[in-house]
Deep mutational scan, measured.
Amino acid sequence: MTSCHIAEEHIQKVAIFGGTHGNELTGVFLVKHWLENGAEIQRTGLEVKPFITNPRAVKKCTRYIDCDLNRIFDLENLGKKMSEDLPYEVRRAQEINHLFGPKDSEDSYDIIFDLHNTTSNMGCTLILEDSRNNFLIQMFHYIKTSLAPLPCYVYLIEHPSLKYATTRSIAKYPVGIEVGPQPQGVLRADILDQMRKMIKHALDFIHHFNEGKEFPPCAIEVYKIIEKVDYPRDENGEIAAIIHPNLQDQDWKPLHPGDPMFLTLDGKTIPLGGDCTVYPVFVNEAAYYEKKEAFAKTTKLTLNAKSIRCCLH
């Protein structure tokens, strides 16, 4: 018999989150649709729960009410004593943790798909938090293969000092899905179709896995975050240069030392320094102006996964 890495157990509980950011409308629209008619997301033997994560922000069509829901799922915020004085999103995070967690427990949901849009030209993107997770690498390989020839990129946010504390991190297997470009507060049919297909293929993978299909060893190309880059700023902290036209919409493309990065209003080009080629992502993302992030630098690498098969009882 072929030796293989056996994944822990079959997958039982899956959640699909929309509206973690209330103005990213593809996930909101799909989740609302699936709450009314969820036939397309159901798979035999699998509990799939669509869920609106930040209903107040969705109602106002804004990213958040008090603070970013997708950055506060750490033990400090989840452990705060519940009171009306807490920011709305912290209270909501505790409610979500109660419903789908608790985080880092045996009772937490197996998989959470968190649906997002970006204003950046990132196409279909899967966000991975753990480079050693054979199950998710296999799932992402399946999704990428199923979507081809449509490109699907994998963004690895594993980093020693950049801690995200994402909404989906309460699950055993957290999956971020990011599709763009799409303006905030807008629905685009092409973007919706791409996100819908990503979810379909992900659920198909889980179904095949649960039925005992063995997935042979595989490898995927990923883009691992190195650092986030702020806009150049003046002495008052105001933005002093904008994304250069040569960099705009060039997510995932190589940016070499000396290539144009920013452009000042008086026409001066600010190039990339250093001696390493990087791959920019979230270029000129609207939501990241407040976070002082013009783009993120990534490096390209390959992740390998062992063969996996479900432990059938």
Results as ranks from 00 to 15, higher is better:
residue 2 T to F: 07
residue 6 I to G: 14
residue 7 A to E: 15
residue 7 A to G: 13
residue 7 A to P: 14
residue 8 E to P: 15
residue 9 E to V: 06
residue 11 I to A: 02
residue 12 Q to V: 02
residue 12 Q to D: 14
residue 13 K to L: 00
residue 14 V to T: 00
residue 14 V to E: 03
residue 17 F to D: 02
residue 18 G to D: 02
residue 18 G to M: 05
residue 18 G to V: 00
residue 20 T to H: 08
residue 21 H to P: 04
residue 22 G to T: 08
residue 22 G to H: 08
residue 23 N to S: 09
residue 24 E to V: 04
residue 24 E to A: 07
residue 28 V to H: 15
residue 28 V to C: 15
residue 30 L to H: 04
residue 31 V to S: 01
residue 32 K to P: 05
residue 33 H to T: 07
residue 34 W to S: 03
residue 35 L to W: 06
residue 39 A to M: 12
residue 41 I to L: 13
residue 41 I to Y: 02
residue 41 I to C: 05
residue 42 Q to C: 10
residue 42 Q to G: 09
residue 46 L to E: 05
residue 47 E to F: 08
residue 47 E to V: 10
residue 49 K to T: 14
residue 49 K to W: 06
residue 51 F to P: 05
residue 51 F to A: 06
residue 53 T to I: 07
residue 54 N to Y: 00
residue 54 N to V: 02
residue 54 N to K: 02
residue 55 P to H: 10
residue 55 P to Y: 09
residue 55 P to K: 11
residue 55 P to L: 09
residue 56 R to K: 14
residue 57 A to N: 01
residue 58 V to L: 07
residue 58 V to A: 11
residue 59 K to L: 10
residue 61 C to S: 12
residue 65 I to D: 08
residue 69 L to H: 06
residue 69 L to F: 08
residue 70 N to F: 06
residue 70 N to S: 10
residue 74 D to G: 12
residue 78 L to C: 10
residue 79 G to C: 14
residue 79 G to S: 14
residue 82 M to T: 13
residue 83 S to W: 09
residue 83 S to H: 13
residue 84 E to K: 13
residue 86 L to R: 10
residue 86 L to V: 13
residue 86 L to T: 13
residue 90 V to C: 12
residue 93 A to V: 10
residue 93 A to M: 12
residue 94 Q to P: 06
residue 94 Q to C: 12
residue 97 N to L: 09
residue 98 H to D: 14
residue 98 H to Y: 13
residue 100 F to G: 05
residue 100 F to A: 04
residue 103 K to P: 10
residue 104 D to T: 12
residue 104 D to V: 10
residue 106 E to Q: 13
residue 106 E to K: 13
residue 107 D to I: 09
residue 109 Y to K: 01
residue 115 L to A: 04
residue 115 L to S: 04
residue 117 N to A: 02
residue 121 N to R: 05
residue 123 G to C: 01
residue 124 C to Y: 03
residue 124 C to R: 03
residue 126 L to G: 03
residue 127 I to S: 01
residue 128 L to H: 05
residue 128 L to E: 03
residue 129 E to K: 03
residue 130 D to Y: 04
residue 131 S to G: 09
residue 132 R to I: 00
residue 135 F to N: 04
residue 135 F to G: 01
residue 136 L to T: 03
residue 137 I to L: 12
residue 138 Q to L: 01
residue 139 M to P: 06
residue 140 F to M: 11
residue 140 F to H: 02
residue 141 H to Q: 07
residue 143 I to R: 02
residue 145 T to K: 14
residue 146 S to E: 14
residue 146 S to L: 09
residue 147 L to G: 01
residue 148 A to M: 11
residue 150 L to K: 12
residue 152 C to M: 07
residue 152 C to F: 04
residue 153 Y to R: 15
residue 153 Y to G: 07
residue 154 V to N: 04
residue 156 L to C: 14
residue 157 I to F: 10
residue 158 E to A: 05
residue 158 E to N: 07
residue 159 H to E: 15
residue 162 L to S: 15
residue 162 L to K: 15
residue 163 K to E: 14
residue 165 A to P: 14
residue 165 A to H: 15
residue 166 T to F: 08
residue 166 T to H: 12
residue 168 R to G: 10
residue 169 S to V: 03
residue 170 I to S: 06
residue 170 I to L: 13
residue 172 K to Y: 00
residue 172 K to T: 07
residue 174 P to A: 13
residue 175 V to L: 05
residue 176 G to N: 08
residue 177 I to L: 09
residue 177 I to E: 03
residue 179 V to Y: 03
residue 179 V to R: 04
residue 180 G to D: 04
residue 180 G to N: 03
residue 181 P to D: 04
residue 182 Q to C: 15
residue 182 Q to I: 09
residue 185 G to P: 04
residue 186 V to F: 05
residue 187 L to C: 11
residue 187 L to F: 03
residue 191 I to V: 12
residue 191 I to W: 05
residue 197 K to S: 13
residue 197 K to L: 13
residue 197 K to I: 10
residue 198 M to E: 04
residue 199 I to F: 03
residue 199 I to P: 00
residue 202 A to D: 06
residue 205 F to I: 00
residue 206 I to K: 06
residue 209 F to H: 00
residue 211 E to M: 14
residue 211 E to D: 12
residue 211 E to L: 12
residue 214 E to I: 13
residue 216 P to R: 05
residue 217 P to L: 01
residue 217 P to A: 11
residue 219 A to F: 08
residue 220 I to H: 03
residue 220 I to W: 01
residue 222 V to H: 05
residue 223 Y to S: 05
residue 224 K to F: 05
residue 228 K to G: 08
residue 229 V to W: 00
residue 229 V to P: 03
residue 232 P to M: 02
residue 233 R to N: 04
residue 233 R to L: 14
residue 234 D to F: 08
residue 237 G to D: 09
residue 237 G to R: 02
residue 238 E to Q: 12
residue 239 I to M: 08
residue 240 A to G: 09
residue 244 H to K: 03
residue 244 H to N: 04
residue 244 H to E: 05
residue 245 P to I: 04
residue 245 P to D: 00
residue 248 Q to R: 05
residue 248 Q to D: 02
residue 249 D to I: 04
residue 252 W to H: 04
residue 252 W to G: 07
residue 253 K to H: 09
residue 254 P to R: 01
residue 254 P to A: 11
residue 254 P to L: 01
residue 254 P to T: 01
residue 254 P to C: 05
residue 254 P to I: 00
residue 254 P to N: 03
residue 256 H to A: 10
residue 256 H to S: 11
residue 256 H to P: 01
residue 257 P to A: 04
residue 258 G to V: 06
residue 259 D to K: 00
residue 259 D to N: 07
residue 260 P to S: 07
residue 261 M to W: 05
residue 261 M to A: 11
residue 262 F to M: 04
residue 263 L to E: 08
residue 264 T to L: 05
residue 266 D to W: 00
residue 266 D to M: 04
residue 266 D to V: 00
residue 267 G to E: 06
residue 268 K to G: 08
residue 269 T to K: 06
residue 269 T to R: 00
residue 269 T to E: 13
residue 270 I to R: 00
residue 272 L to C: 12
residue 274 G to T: 00
residue 276 C to V: 14
residue 276 C to D: 15
residue 277 T to D: 08
residue 278 V to S: 01
residue 278 V to M: 06
residue 279 Y to C: 01
residue 279 Y to M: 01
residue 279 Y to K: 03
residue 281 V to R: 03
residue 283 V to D: 05
residue 285 E to K: 03
residue 285 E to R: 02
residue 285 E to G: 09
residue 286 A to N: 07
residue 286 A to D: 03
residue 287 A to F: 10
residue 288 Y to N: 15
residue 289 Y to P: 15
residue 289 Y to W: 12
residue 292 K to W: 07
residue 295 F to G: 05
residue 298 T to Y: 00
residue 298 T to P: 01
residue 302 T to D: 01
residue 303 L to S: 02
residue 303 L to R: 03
residue 303 L to M: 01
residue 304 N to W: 15
residue 307 S to K: 11
residue 308 I to E: 01
residue 308 I to C: 00
residue 309 R to P: 03
residue 309 R to C: 10
residue 310 C to E: 03
residue 310 C to M: 13
residue 311 C to V: 15
residue 311 C to T: 14
residue 312 L to C: 14
